[in-house]
């Protein structure tokens, strides 16, 4: 049985210009111990699917799916209370803007402790011990000193480490990372990606990387789903995707990478759109 299984997911938003189809019948499966990358450009619906799974979409969204199961548990029929029990504990998520994702009014130690108290039976001194353990696990230098630091006193990379600590606090079975390194510098990005992959490998959890960056995909993923305008273009394991892309859109994306530039001009997606007709 897969960890997360979604069949034929459709999401529509109400807007001033009428309904907007953000996702049009996409399937997702993630197994335990697997790194799935969902790649796409803005408007591809890559984040929408996971936000729908987490129940984080606004009311203007209409969600429909033939199947939406986490470990055999139907997420669609779940009550809000039961959903909260699963989300945050068994499924957790980290976001693009680490500094904005933390509450500026509380210390990071306190916020980590709150997460633990909400989902585990740990109380009192044990909470602090576990928080320090977590901070150590995500490679924050000087956890004791950082415990009482406020988010604005730390750098973006450190904040993202705290977010990761919060996400893995309850040993989730599935971690969803939505553009976790887009706001960070290249050298910090490398560290955070390495950390995520190492944590995933050590704990055997499933990891979904949502990204627009082919480099991040190449560095982390086992399997890749390429999306474009709410549809799935291609799904393949990472090596075959880069070696033998089947879909014209994937080909276009790969050849638009400046490092793959062969001639004087970069081929663009529209060059391929004419030929491939997607």
């Amino acid at each position: 049985m897969s960890l997360l299984e979604i069949r034929n997911l459709k999401v529509e938003f109400d807007t001033a210009k009428g309904p907007f189809k953000a996702l049009d019948g996409v399937d997702y499966t993630v197994d335990a111990g697997e790194v799935l990358a969902i790649v796409g450009e803005s408007g591809s619906g890559k984040s929408v699917a996971m936000l729908a799974t987490m129940g984080l979409l606004p009311d203007s969204a209409t969600i429909a799916a033939d199947k939406m199961e986490f470990e055999g548990l139907d997420l669609q029929t779940l009550s809000a209370r039961d959903r909260r029990r699963v989300i945050g504990k068994d499924i957790s998520m980290i976001f693009q803007e680490p500094i904005a994702s933390l509450n500026p009014c509380f210390t990071v130690g306190f916020q980590l402790g709150e997460t633990l108290k909400a989902h585990t039976d740990l109380r009192g001194k044990k909470v602090k011990t576990r928080v320090l353990e977590l901070m150590h696990a995500v490679g924050l230098p000087d956890p004791e000193g950082r415990f009482n630091a406020f988010p604005h006193q730390m750098s973006g990379g450190q904040c993202q480490r705290v977010m990761i600590a919060m996400a893995i606090a309850c040993s989730p079975k599935l971690l969803i990372a939505d553009e976790p390194t887009t706001a960070l510098d290249v050298t910090i990005q490398k560290q955070i990606l390495d950390l995520l992959v190492q944590l995933q490998r050590d704990s055997g959890m499933g990891l979904i990387m949502i990204t627009h960056d082919m480099g991040v995909v190449a560095e982390t993923a086992d399997r890749v789903i390429v999306q474009y305008k709410g549809r799935k273009m291609e799904e393949a394991d990472v090596l075959s995707l880069f070696e033998r892309p089947q879909n014209p859109y994937t080909k276009a994306l790969l050849s638009a990478l400046p490092e793959n530039a062969t001639g004087d001009r970069l081929p663009t997606v529209s060059d391929f759109a004419e030929a491939g007709g997607f």
Partner: peptide, 19 residues
């Protein structure tokens, strides 16, 4: 050098190496 090392490599050889 550090900057170059940190830049993600999106070529097939690097993926092979990582896998």
């Amino acid at each position: 050098k550090k900057l170059f090392a940190a830049t993600p490599q999106a070529d097939v050889a690097s993926i092979r190496k990582r896998l």
